[in-house]
């Protein structure tokens, strides 16, 4: 797997859709954030909402890298870790699908401690999922042996 992190990010963009494939490395995060934020802005989200979408996507991708692709997890070692994103608009919604082939983790069943409690206790981490839920309107997770894991984040344009 040596050098996978230096492989190029592949990205197809149109005015309303992005298909992105990036190495499963934290170096990819800045490009992913900027690309998703750019589309969110183009489709009409105000700046404050774009900042929330950007952070939710960053947290979701960071979680994949930290947990799904953690070195101690039995993820599919015959493939280099990668992040695949499909970002598009449909029926007044911005939909962001983040796919990985790492260890399964059901975001929807895990209940993190409230954000406020962690902050008040000056915890060093564990805020990611609470932030995703706070900033997005819908969060859905599916997993299968053939397709891997997909986290689907939805933001309603009409509320913004």
């Amino acid at each position: 797997m040596s050098g996978f992190e230096s492989q190029p990010i592949r990205c197809k963009k149109s005015t309303r859709r992005i298909s992105l494939q990036a190495p499963g490395h934290s170096k990819s995060l800045a490009f992913i954030r900027a690309t998703v934020a750019d589309l969110a802005c183009q489709v009409g989200f105000p700046e404050d909402e774009v900042a929330k979408i950007e952070m939710a996507v960053d947290e979701a991708c960071s979680n994949v890298l930290e947990h799904a692709y953690a070195p101690d997890k039995p993820w599919y070692s015959h493939r280099d870790p990668e992040l695949r994103l499909e970002v598009f608009t449909e029926g007044g919604q911005l939909i962001i699908e983040i796919q990985d082939h790492g260890a399964q983790f059901d975001f929807t069943k895990y209940q993190p401690p409230p954000l406020e409690e962690g902050i008040r206790k000056l915890q060093r981490g564990g805020f990611g999922l609470a932030i995703i839920r706070k900033f997005m309107d819908e969060v859905q997770y599916t997993s299968s042996a053939s397709a891997g894991n997909t986290l689907r984040l939805v933001k309603y344009l009409k509320n913004s």
């Binding site: 995060l29 000056l122 060093r124 981490g125």
Partner: peptide, 16 residues
């Protein structure tokens, strides 16, 4: 330009 929860978590840990 940006700060994520990893950075914020680190900052409150260091502040503590």
């Amino acid at each position: 330009d940006y700060i994520g929860s990893a950075g914020l978590g680190a900052l409150i840990g260091f502040a503590k």
